[in-house]
Write a protein that binds this DNA or RNA. Structure first.
Lengths: 246, 246
DNA sequence: CGCGCTGTTGAAACTTGTCAAAGTTTGTGG
DNA sequence: CCACAAACTTTGACAAGTTTCAACAGCGCG
């Protein structure tokens, strides 16, 4: 877990079992619902499950019937091809949804693996469609969430298609920082839950290149690195590094 | 336009103005709707528009209110960043939808440019949400289309993150071939509507690298290239090239 | 019919990948 | 709780792939 910043909006120590009592509801699917609507969503989200570090939440090729909301923890999604190549397609944290890729073919098209002990809420998709026909806010918000995923993917394409190694890593760190901030954690200090290899796979780089970029950022005074513990010392420096291409 | 293969399922010479009469309905939003449901969709899709080659259908940052179905023609979507870098995020052809990225923020997040004279149908999004609350098939199919876009994006990430230049181009050509086939055109012979630079931007390569890869494919006998006219001579060869990494 | 845009090709430079070795952390079983 | 093995990280030297720069050819639009 990253460092809590005092007074952050989220307290993970209190975990209720319904959306209506969930601290993540403003980040997650229930955004914008009334109290009465929230209760109806509660009925739907009945299955909650722990996923231990290293376990799969789902695997590519298996039948799709639910999407998943992360209540706590940290996941990666990846796609594997025959010859053993892996592409990490994303890292997901509390309040984010997993499994949207499975809707199109009714089978999951990637693997979702917990990078730390996590808890998820399963949302049966057929029932979500029923409910979203009745609750306009839910329908619209769900569409926004799917669209946001598409926009996020375009950002990754930009990163992979046009940036060099250090720019990619800077963008990655700034993105993590921003997402931790949104969850009430420190924007400047966090633990990475993934290995250099997984970061590399996400960024289209080899692990050695990732490691060298970390070292270089440290030399330049942008960050302090101690294995998986990262402290960002110069946000502006990282941003500048991202923007001037050469 | 790519070569028509005789007896293909689509005749572009007959263009009706309603979904119910549109030859693309099996590729496009109306998939799976009954005749009665189709009529209701017709009411919604009232604006049809020509977009000349080089013109923008929409621009990044402008307000979003409709998604667009391509009736005929060819588009690219791209994202620009300040320092002038461009990432082409996709090439779209008849029957495909444009603008899904705009739902999340109610503003378009990329540019859509016609690569040949094209025709589109505008689908007001708010009205689509209303109708999809009433027509379950439409709702579900729309969700599938959005999800398919996410899956497609993951494929592009895989391409950008793990493949080398020639693999990327092979994957690109095979993908185009497959999509032309689905539209009743020859799978082996087509005109590229985009420049080497646009292909390069999509594939995360410089135009010179794309050009060299085309030349090499021609030397190896995989394809015949004459500027924008491509003939695929050895599908299996291209597939093999994609799969063995080194 | 020519000018500009697009595409091709070569050589050199640069970035990233590959291979290898050693150091560090983490997890497990005794 | 310690010890050892496995997994992960760092760093160096070298190789490979891609970009950069440059020159030229070809096509097509006006």
């Amino acid at each position: 877990m990253p460092q809590r910043s005092p007074g952050g909006p989220i307290s993970l120590s209190v975990i209720k079992t319904a959306c209506s009592g969930c601290n993540l509801r403003e980040l997650c699917l229930p955004l914008g619902l009334s109290a009465e609507e929230l209760e109806r969503l509660d009925d739907l989200v009945s299955v909650r499950r722990r996923v231990k570090r290293g376990e799969h939440l789902y695997r590519s090729g298996t039948p799709f019937d639910s999407i998943f909301a992360i209540r706590s923890g940290f996941f990666k999604t990846d796609v594997l091809i025959e010859d053993g190549r892996e592409q990490v397609t994303g890292f997901q944290m509390a309040g984010e949804l997993l499994g949207l890729d499975g809707i199109s073919s009714e089978h999951h098209t990637c693997n979702a693996v917990a990078l730390e002990d996590s808890e998820i809420c399963a949302i049966p998709f057929a029932r979500l469609e029923v409910l979203s026909r009745e609750i306009h806010t839910l329908q619209h918000h769900f569409h926004k969430v799917m669209s946001r995923e598409i926009v996020r993917d375009h950002g990754v394409m930009m990163l992979l298609g046009t940036m060099r190694a250090e720019e990619r890593l800077a963008a990655f760190l700034l993105n993590l920082s921003q997402r931790f901030t949104a969850r009430g954690f420190s924007h400047a200090e966090f633990y990475l839950r993934m290995t250099r290899e997984e970061i590399g796979s996400y960024l289209g780089l080899k692990l050695e290149t990732v490691s060298r970029a970390f070292s270089r950022f440290q030399e330049e005074g942008y960050i302090a690195v101690q294995q998986k513990h990262i402290r960002i010392l110069d946000v502006a420096g990282l941003k500048a590094l991202m923007n001037h291409h050469r």
